[in-house]
Amino acid sequence: MTAPVAEVSALLLDLDGTLVDSEPLHRRGYESFFAHKGWDLPDLSVFTGRRAVDVFATEPGPWEGLDPEAVLAEVLDHVPDEAAQAVPGARDLIEAARAGGTPVAIVTSAGPAWVERSLVESLALELDSVDLVVTARDVEDGKPHPAGFALACRRLDADPAAALAAEDSPAGVRAARGAGVRRVHGIGTSHPRDVLLDAGAVDVHADLRPLLPLLPLLPSG
């Protein structure tokens, strides 16, 4: 078994595709929305790990010239109203970090309501099971900009170089690395291993269980 590292200043976790396998729900929502509009379905990977409003504001597509917030509101009407499945190891990882004294932050492109629903319904945890939540509303620039991870480290007073992060998208990996996080582990729910490694992940796993041995334990006594 891999030995715990000497220090983890904070555990920084993405939400969609990392803690919960929500990408199938999002895909169904986008597919329904684009079919409803009569638009060709784009490569949906452009949305993974990024705030949808940023994509609608900056990427070319049939939505050009429309209000990004209004387009997102339409998309959300098409997303199935159901909780996502938990990624294996998600609950255990959060509980192990808290038990070992490692602060935990969720750094996500989603909004607060989806964070709470995912924690409560998908992971059977309370919102206060994590020390900090940084959502799309807390930063001006979304992933791959490092603002969210940098804010999490500042608020937790955590050295980013000693932090441990988990992300499922290249945008998220780049955001964490850009904030100075050296140990960014890819979770291969949404993208191939080589894509996450090329973005800067130190390793890629099928789920979160391989990260459990990396957490330090509280000193005995």
Rank of each mutant, 00 (worst) to 15 (best):
Asp194Ala: 14
Ser220Ala: 15
His205Ile: 10
Gly221Val: 12
Ala201Phe: 09
Ser190Arg: 06
Leu215Arg: 08
Ser190Pro: 01
Ser220Thr: 15
Asp198Gln: 13
Ala201Leu: 10
Arg182Thr: 14
Asp203Lys: 00
Leu196Val: 01
Leu208Thr: 02
Leu212Gly: 08
Arg209Ala: 14
Gly188Asp: 11
Arg183Lys: 05
Ile187Ser: 07
Asp203Tyr: 04
Arg209Gly: 06
His205Lys: 07
Pro216Ser: 11
Leu214Pro: 07
Pro219His: 05
Leu208Gln: 09
Pro192Ile: 08
Pro192Asn: 00
Arg183Ser: 11
Arg182Phe: 02
Arg183Met: 08
Ser220Pro: 14
Arg182Ala: 14
Val204Trp: 00
Ala201Pro: 03
His185Tyr: 12
Thr189Met: 02
Gly221Tyr: 07
Pro192Met: 07
His205Met: 05
Val202Tyr: 00
His191Glu: 03
Val202Phe: 09
Leu212Ala: 10
Pro219Glu: 12
Leu218Thr: 14
Arg183Val: 00
Ala206Asn: 08
Leu217Val: 15
Leu196Ile: 06
Asp203Thr: 11
Pro192Trp: 05
Pro192Gly: 04
Val184Gly: 00
Pro213Asp: 06
Val202Arg: 07
Leu214Ser: 12
His191Pro: 02
Pro192Tyr: 04
His185Met: 03
Ser190Met: 13
Ala201Ser: 10
Ile187His: 10
Thr189Glu: 02
Pro213Leu: 06
Val195Glu: 13
Asp207Gln: 10
Pro192Leu: 07
Asp207Arg: 01
